[in-house]
Simulated assay, not measured.
Amino acid sequence: MLPQQCNANQLKELCNSSVLIPHLNNLVQQTMFQQDLIMNLLSNLQQNVKVDGTQPGISSQVRTMENDTVADTANSEKERSLLVNISELQSRMITLTDELISAKLKHVQLQQELNALYCREEIEDIRDEDNEKT
């Protein structure tokens, strides 16, 4: 019976590594990529847009108001773009989470099937031993 237990353990390890590990590696890579994108988006959002408003004959108050308006418009467009990108990343995360859950469920199912096969083999071995004794 001991050699069959080794085989069953080897089958479990093979099943675990061949089914779940590639999915998890893929999910980790995609998550890291998305985190990098989010960090880049946040750093872009934090950068100030500087506009050169040195026009002769215009008061500094008017220049400041013009600069603020241009900066606000640029920031609003950037914010909209960043919000769209964040929404896309959130959608991807939802998809990846769904894929991970699916992979975990498949892994559990395969483990149950493997355990059922192992139990059947154990029962058959016990029957064979009983038949040999009689």
Rank of each mutant, 00 (worst) to 15 (best):
M1V: 14
L2Q: 14
P3N: 04
Q5S: 08
C6K: 13
C6E: 09
N9D: 15
N9L: 08
Q10G: 02
L11S: 15
E13L: 15
E13M: 10
E13S: 14
L14C: 09
C15H: 13
C15M: 11
S17A: 04
V19H: 10
V19I: 11
I21T: 05
P22W: 05
H23A: 10
H23D: 06
L24G: 06
L24V: 06
N25S: 02
N26E: 11
L27E: 07
L27Q: 00
T31P: 07
T31Q: 14
T31E: 07
M32R: 11
F33C: 08
I38H: 06
I38G: 04
M39T: 14
N40C: 05
N40W: 06
L42W: 02
L42E: 09
L42Y: 08
L42H: 11
S43A: 13
S43C: 01
S43M: 06
N44K: 00
L45C: 02
Q46F: 07
Q46C: 13
Q47T: 11
N48I: 01
V49W: 01
V51P: 14
G53M: 12
T54C: 11
T54F: 07
T54E: 10
Q55V: 01
Q55W: 05
Q55F: 03
G57W: 01
I58Y: 04
I58H: 01
S60F: 00
Q61V: 09
Q61I: 03
V62Q: 06
T64H: 01
M65F: 10
N67Y: 01
N67V: 01
D68T: 13
T69R: 15
V70Q: 14
A71T: 14
N75D: 14
E77S: 09
E77C: 12
E77K: 08
K78R: 15
R80T: 02
S81L: 10
S81Y: 12
S81W: 06
S81M: 05
S81E: 07
S81A: 09
N85S: 14
L89P: 00
L89F: 10
S91H: 03
R92W: 08
M93N: 14
I94Q: 06
T95F: 03
L96D: 11
T97S: 13
T97Q: 12
D98R: 00
D98L: 00
D98Q: 07
E99L: 02
E99P: 05
L100E: 06
L100P: 03
I101Q: 05
I101T: 06
I101V: 09
I101D: 01
S102R: 03
A103L: 05
K104N: 13
L105A: 11
K106R: 11
H107L: 04
H107K: 00
V108Q: 13
Q109I: 02
Q109M: 05
Q109V: 01
Q109D: 13
Q111R: 07
Q111Y: 13
L114E: 07
N115R: 10
N115L: 12
L117K: 10
Y118M: 12
C119P: 12
R120E: 12
E121Q: 15
D125R: 15
D125A: 12
D125W: 14
I126F: 11
E129M: 09
D130M: 15
D130E: 15
D130S: 15
N131K: 07
N131F: 03
E132L: 09
E132Q: 03
E132K: 07
T134Q: 12
